[in-house]
Each structure stands twice: as structure tokens, then as C-alpha cells.
Design a protein around this nucleic acid. Structure first.
Lengths: 215, 215
DNA sequence: GTCTATAGAGGGATAGAC
DNA sequence: GTCTATCCCTCTATAGAC
């Protein structure tokens, strides 16, 4: 996430607008959207409340802008389906899972992304847009991608002929739970060592379970 | 959850106090703690705002009361560790997992519990107490229990000698993610059929993977 | 694009009569 | 335990000068 875009996808150039967005992500991720006021944000940005409305039509548009930037960033880390054949040919299942895990971890560990993940979690119940985005972009998106990959590996006889959809769910769902735990631990500045090890353990255990070549 | 208790664990007898708690759970679970005012709650309860303070010292104490009741209810559905031997002797691993799944599902499907789960999710980032409760009561509690059970099954030679802690994590974490998806789907009154099937699929897949008697 | 000023609603909480 | 009345604060948002 190098540059923010507005709700229409255009890059944001104005310095104060970037600052408002940046501060909003910081504070929303800590206290939640409702608990943070425009007053809080503009004070930290060093401008007056009224100037806020030159950049965003409303507080809701500010949140929406954050969501748009999240969606953009998530789509960037997911390999396009056309590349799946190359990937599958180049890596065995275990390497594929461990590489994906590393990419995913790098993504969620970038400070701004980590904060936005937290906002998405926070606002899921209150905000239908956050909920929709999480379910479609994250859960369904990732699972569908993995399903394709696992199907290829099965065709290549590299993993056992389980149902590819089941495999995708079995692999990805634990990671969702671990990611959310990771995010909460970071919130308290507690060590994430154990949960990170669990992610790796999971990838190893899983490839062990599904691969043709046993033990 | 038949009767609410106050923050000291004493049953709540007063009708209005019960109503306030009940309505608070309803509305907090939909809109989040910060977005709901005491005004909203007392209006729905049919009493004046000022009367609220005869029952709860503050809005925070109200939330704390909800958490206390959640903790009480969760502890009630977890079998005590002394009963593990009987359970393991009476059921094979697959039956154990499917039975546990049914209990868990019944618990989370009780309307009040479902709402409180949602509040816990909602408040996790904002409220350290909610976070602590989720991590210790739910995640660590359930995982530790399963670890003991899996160890027994391994000793009895009924499942393969994987690390019991890994097995507990591998089994429970996907369920955490599925539960949170379940809760979000219910929020939009969407069908939970698929995610419920996934839970069962997971239990079946998992017992298939870990059991000695293969295919 | 930023400011001052202000509108207008709603927030948590308390005092004191009954 | 409930009420009326009220305090003082914070909130989002707008109007209009510069």
C-alpha cells in the first residue's frame, strides 16, 4: 500500500487528505469507527473539523475510502488464475503452501494493512459493507483460488483425490482463525511467535496429510 | 442461559434490570456498544434514563455484566476434565467430534448466546476484557480440553500418534472461523446451511485423517 | 482549501421530589 | 425504584469570510 486512492479509485494527492485517511486508519483500528470522532481525527491532523468536509462528504465516506483501499490491496496479492498452471508446475504442494503463507504473512504484517484488517473485523457486525467485503473478497476469494490449485495438483497426481473444495476449506479456515488471533495479539503487543509457528505447523501438517508420498 | 447474574455472580431478580440487560444484548449485538445509547435502551425498556443508574453504576458496568454471563454460560457447556476418561471410553473419535459439534452448535444457536458471541467479536478490538475473555475462555480453554482428549485416544491407539496439541489446533481452529462466519450469516438472515455442512464435513474429514482404521 | 462561528441533535450522568 | 428536570459535554454537519 504505497498510495491511497479515493472512492472512485483515483490516487489521493492532497497532503491533508492523506493525513486524515492515515490517522483515521490508526484510530479506527484501535477504538472502532463509532468511538472516534471527526474532532479526534482533525485535531491530530492539525486542521479544523470543518476542513474535513472539503475532503470527504461525510464520516461514512471516509470509512468507505478505507474499504476501497483494502479491496485494492487484497486483489494485488492474489495471483491471477491464469498463472495457476505455472505455479503448480513449478512447486510441489508443500512449497506452494509455505510460499503462500509467507506472502500472506508479509501482507498482513505491513502496519497499515494490519490496521485495516482490524477495522474490517471491528466493523463486520455493524457495517454490511465490511461484512460483504470480508466474505466475498477474503473468504470466498481465497477459498475459490485454492480450490483451483488443489484440483490441478490432484490431476497431476501429486495429492490424494479428496474433494478440492473440502481441501481448500480445510486448509484456509484455520488460517483465518489464526490471522484474527495474530491481529489481536499484536493489539496488546504480545508475542506472535507461537501463533506464527502454528501457521507453519498447519501448512506442514496439511501437506503431510494430503500428499501421495506418505511419511 | 436461563437466569442472568450481576457482576458479583448473584442472580438478577428485578424485572426492569433483566429487561435492560436483555435489550442491551439485543442492541449491542446489532450496532455495537458505542453506537447504542442508554437513552435507546431505557426507551425500549419503558423506563427513564435516570432509572438506569439504579441498576447499573455505568454503561461500562452493563457491558461487564454481559461478559460475566457469557463466561458463566461457556463454562457450563465444557465437560470437566475428570469426565474425559469416561467420554473417551464410551465413544470413538468420530462420534466424539460429531457429538461435540452438536453441543457447540446448540449452544451458539440459542438466541441470547448467539448475540453475546457477536458482542464479544465486536468488542474484541476495543475492549481488552472482551479480548482476554475470548482468548482464554474460548480459544485456549477449548484447545487445552481437546489436547487432553486426543492424547487419551492416542494412548488407546485409536488415532495416529500425531502431536496432540497440533491435532487440537488443527481440529478447533477451522471451527472458530466457521463459527464467526455462521454468526455473520445469521446477522443478514442468510442461509447457514452450507457453513453448517462444512462444520460436519470438517469433523468427518478430520476423523478420517487421524484415525488408525483407514478408508 | 482553510478558517471562525454556529446550528441542532444526542451523549452520559446527577439532584432531588415522590 | 421511578420520576422530572437539568447539567455539561461531544457529536456531525453547514454557512460564509478570507
Amino acid at each position: 500500500m504505497n498510495a491511497f486512492v479515493d472512492i472512485n479509485g483515483k490516487p489521493i494527492a492532497n497532503k491533508n487528505k492523506i493525513a486524515l485517511l492515515d490517522i483515521a486508519i490508526d484510530t479506527f483500528s484501535l477504538n472502532g469507527f463509532t468511538a472516534v470522532s471527526i474532532r479526534d481525527i482533525t485535531r491530530k491532523a492539525g486542521i479544523k473539523e470543518s476542513s474535513f468536509y472539503n475532503h470527504f462528504r461525510s464520516k461514512d465516506e471516509l470509512l468507505e475510502t478505507i474499504f476501497v483501499n483494502f479491496r485494492k490491496s487484497v486483489q494485488k496479492i492474489m495471483p491471477p488464475l491464469e498463472r495457476v498452471d505455472d505455479i503448480v508446475a513449478a512447486m510441489d504442494p508443500k512449497s506452494f503452501l509455505l510460499t503462500g503463507l509467507r506472502n500472506f504473512r508479509d501482507h498482513v504484517q505491513s502496519p497499515k494493512m494490519e490496521q485495516i484488517w482490524r477495522i474490517i473485523y471491528l466493523e463486520q457486525c455493524r457495517n454490511p459493507m465490511a461484512r460483504e467485503m470480508y466474505v466475498t473478497e477474503i473468504v470466498q476469494g481465497v477459498t475459490a483460488f485454492l480450490e483451483v490449485v488443489f484440483r490441478k495438483y490432484i490431476e497431476r497426481n501429486q495429492i490424494r483425490p479428496y474433494d478440492p473444495k473440502t481441501l481448500a476449506v480445510e486448509y484456509q479456515y484455520p488460517l483465518f482463525a489464526m490471522i484474527s488471533e495474530f491481529i489481536l495479539l499484536r493489539l496488546d503487543r504480545r508475542s506472535t511467535e507461537e501463533i506464527e509457528r502454528r501457521m507453519t505447523d498447519h501448512a506442514v501438517f496439511f501437506s503431510h496429510v494430503i500428499c501421495r508420498s506418505e511419511e
